[in-house]
Simulated scan of single mutants.
Amino acid sequence: MIQTHRKGDWFEIIVPDKWANFSVEELFRNIWHAPKKQTHSLRMEKRVKVNGQIAVWTVPLKRKDRLEIQFFTEEELTIKPTFYDLSILYEDDHLLVVNKPANMDTHPNSSEQTDTLANAVAFHLQAKGEYRQVKHIHRLDKDTTGAVLFAKHPFIGSILDQLLEKREIKRTYLAIVHGILSTKKGTIKESIGRDRHHATRRRVSPGGQKAITHYEVIDTNHQESISIVKCSLETGRTHQIRVHFSYIGHPLAGDQLYGGNPIFPRQALHAVKLELIHPFTEEMIQCHAPFLDKKEIFTRIDPYRI
């Protein structure tokens, strides 16, 4: 693990052996793949230092050099902070993973909306004296519960966006579906596009975007004719799990938009686990999201064993 510290507005990294002989410029470009605009801004504003001195970006770093980057400056908030008693799964100076409850949007859809997870995260940071923009790296549907990743400053946000695009942030879901699946482990490969006849629905469509869902049945109830399946995604299409299971004849319980029966108070979908390699420390971050509503059928499953 790479040794790091926070010092006020500055983030300090002790240069490890494997970064020796990389210049600061090469580190930003080839290791972190940082956006050119952000890199240029940090360079021009002299917000990168090496051993206490303004960095010379083309000079090779040495083992145990102190690389300092000014990440933690205050920003004007555009999302109104709103109190909510958050369930926080992981937090450090750069990122935050929150367990989203049901019936809550991930982010505002208009400037007037103040009851979203992003508003609550903004309040959480402000209460800690951190006046910075929060950015959701991915989103969950309003009635889907579980782990959501947020970035606490723009630089880490850009890196996390890239990791998500490259599928290096792994998300695991649990879904309750109608029926008993004949195949206990499989993959659904069906492209997904918009439904021309419904504003919010998606549907399997040959002309849609590539969509791949892997699944495994982990529990069944023959009396109620339901199965609990573990899902992981190679693609992140809107409503992907809901559309795919409806297409194969096993819609999610409670998902009336896609043919599910209302035996569940919402679509039965929970983001149970989130995993990534931390971009700065290179440690494995693994978050398990417990079930916030103890009355739901999901509680027969131990989320920490997924």
Rank of each mutant, 00 (worst) to 15 (best):
D195F: 04
G236S: 04
S158P: 13
I228H: 06
L233G: 01
T235N: 03
G157W: 02
I241V: 01
G179P: 12
P251N: 10
K185T: 10
Q162A: 02
T200S: 12
E168C: 07
K166W: 05
Q209I: 02
L164G: 03
L181N: 08
I188P: 15
E234S: 11
R202C: 03
L233Y: 01
V204E: 15
E190Y: 08
Y215V: 01
E168W: 02
G236K: 02
I226A: 07
I159K: 01
L174T: 00
F245A: 03
I159W: 05
T238W: 06
I241M: 11
G157P: 11
D161A: 03
G249I: 05
I176C: 13
R196N: 14
L174S: 04
R167K: 12
I226P: 14
V148Q: 03
G207T: 12
S225H: 11
V217C: 07
K230D: 05
K210G: 05
P251S: 10
I169M: 07
V229A: 08
D255A: 12
K152Q: 08
G254H: 06
P154I: 08
F155R: 02
G146S: 08
D219A: 13
R196I: 10
A147T: 00
Y247T: 00
P206N: 06
A175H: 12
K166I: 01
H198M: 11
H153N: 10
G146Y: 04
C231P: 13
H153C: 06
G207P: 15
